[in-house]
C-alpha cells in the first residue's frame, strides 16, 4: 500500500472489527487518536493529523492481528466502509474467537 504524500490530503485509521481482538497496542501508541471501549476494543477519533502520520503507520504495522490499517481519505461519520477490511495474513475460514459467558 502506498501512503499519500504530505500534500495529498489526510489519512485515516480503520479497524477490521472481525480481525481485532482487543490487544490495545494501538491505543498505547496513539493515545490522542485511539481510546479503548469498556471491553478493550479500539475507538478511533477522527482523521490522522499530518503530524501523527508516521506514528499511525507504525501502529498499523505493529498491530498483532493486522486489524489496524492506515488509508488515504477522510472518515465519514456514521458510514461503514465496505470492502475496506484489510487483507488477512492467512487464507482459510475464520474461526469463532469469542466465547460467551
Amino acid at each position: 500500500m502506498t501512503l499519500p504524500g504530505p500534500a495529498s490530503g489526510r489519512a485515516r485509521l480503520t479497524v477490521d472489527p472481525i480481525a481485532c481482538d482487543g490487544r490495545g497496542i494501538c491505543a498505547e501508541l496513539l493515545p490522542g487518536l485511539i481510546t479503548l471501549d469498556d471491553w478493550g476494543f479500539p475507538i478511533i477519533h477522527g482523521d490522522v493529523p499530518p503530524a501523527l502520520r508516521d506514528e499511525a503507520a507504525e501502529a498499523a504495522r505493529l498491530c498483532p492481528k493486522l486489524a489496524l490499517r492506515l488509508t488515504a481519505g477522510r472518515s465519514v461519520p456514521g458510514e461503514s466502509v465496505p470492502g475496506e477490511a484489510p487483507a488477512r495474513p492467512a487464507a482459510g475460514r475464520r474461526r469463532r474467537r469469542w466465547s460467551r459467558s
Partner: peptide
C-alpha cells in the same frame, strides 16, 4: 460472535 464490541457490548 466475530466482533468484540458486539459480543461483549450487547451481552453487557
Amino acid at each position: 460472535g466475530q466482533c468484540g464490541p458486539c459480543v461483549f457490548g450487547l451481552d453487557a
